[in-house]
Computed example of a mutant assay.
Amino acid sequence: MNFLLSIFVCAPVFVTCFSLCPPIVCDTYMCKLIEHCDGRIAPKGGYCGCCDSCVKQLEEGDLCPSLPLLGAPIQSECGEGLYCDKETSLCTKFGGACKEEYDSKKQITDPMLGMDLPECEDDGSYKPKQCSESVCYCVSADGKQIGGATYRWEADDVKCECARERYEVTMGPQRLGQFVPQCDESGDYKSIQCHGSVCYCVDRSYGNKIEGSERHISELGNFEC
């Protein structure tokens, strides 16, 4: 009934309701008392932020919900100690610095505002690529930005694996003859890599060598991948 009522109230101003949710919408919306919630109570988490809502807490391995439309309530979320892995769309356990940031932001994030939460590895470290507002950027395992920013709409295929590898190599103990990858501006691998006197083509996302592409460094001027 509440869902139908919300549609009726919002219908005359459909675009406005689901983009701005003006206060007048809530003035005519009758909130239903939540007598039992098998999850957590989200203050003003209902349609257009008019009423409190009950958000189901998902368990590890459960399918994560997609982001709702602006103004629509979230109905479920990964429970405490879990985050939604965007690659698998499953609730995943983590711990560490990324977990701490995730938990702190999750507590203050209004579901309707869509604040970006950090992307975490299973061990709690940061994934190489992070996004905030309109940009994405590469970070170290502890969350330090290690490269320039790329507009979000241009970063779908960016992995930042090269930026992470180069950072860890250059910041760690130096060894004679150690391979240092060459990265493009986005943080992915340049298509040609060289180690010693040998150059070769690689997969730009993960740096995997393309077999049979090896050339002597003297041929680099005429070498294309």
Rank of each mutant, 00 (worst) to 15 (best):
P68Q: 03
C48E: 00
G71W: 03
S66R: 13
C91D: 08
E214V: 09
Y83F: 12
L63H: 08
L82A: 05
K159M: 13
G187S: 14
K56V: 14
S197P: 04
L33F: 09
M1V: 03
I108S: 07
L220Q: 08
P173N: 06
C98Y: 03
A155R: 11
S134F: 15
D123C: 04
S197Y: 14
C194E: 07
E211W: 07
L113C: 07
T109D: 10
C120W: 01
G196I: 04
P118Y: 00
T92K: 15
E119P: 05
D110Y: 05
H36C: 09
A155D: 11
D203T: 15
Q75L: 12
C183F: 07
Y47P: 00
T150K: 11
M30W: 11
L117Q: 04
D110M: 00
V15R: 14
E168Q: 11
D116C: 05
L4V: 09
V198H: 08
G177R: 04
E161R: 11
D27A: 13
P22C: 08
C91T: 02
A42L: 02
G81Y: 06
E214F: 04
A11M: 08
Y102N: 01
G114A: 07
I7A: 09
S205V: 10
G172N: 06
M112P: 01
C136A: 05
R164D: 02
K129R: 08
G79H: 01
C78R: 02
H216A: 13
Q193G: 10
K93G: 10
A72G: 02
S191V: 11
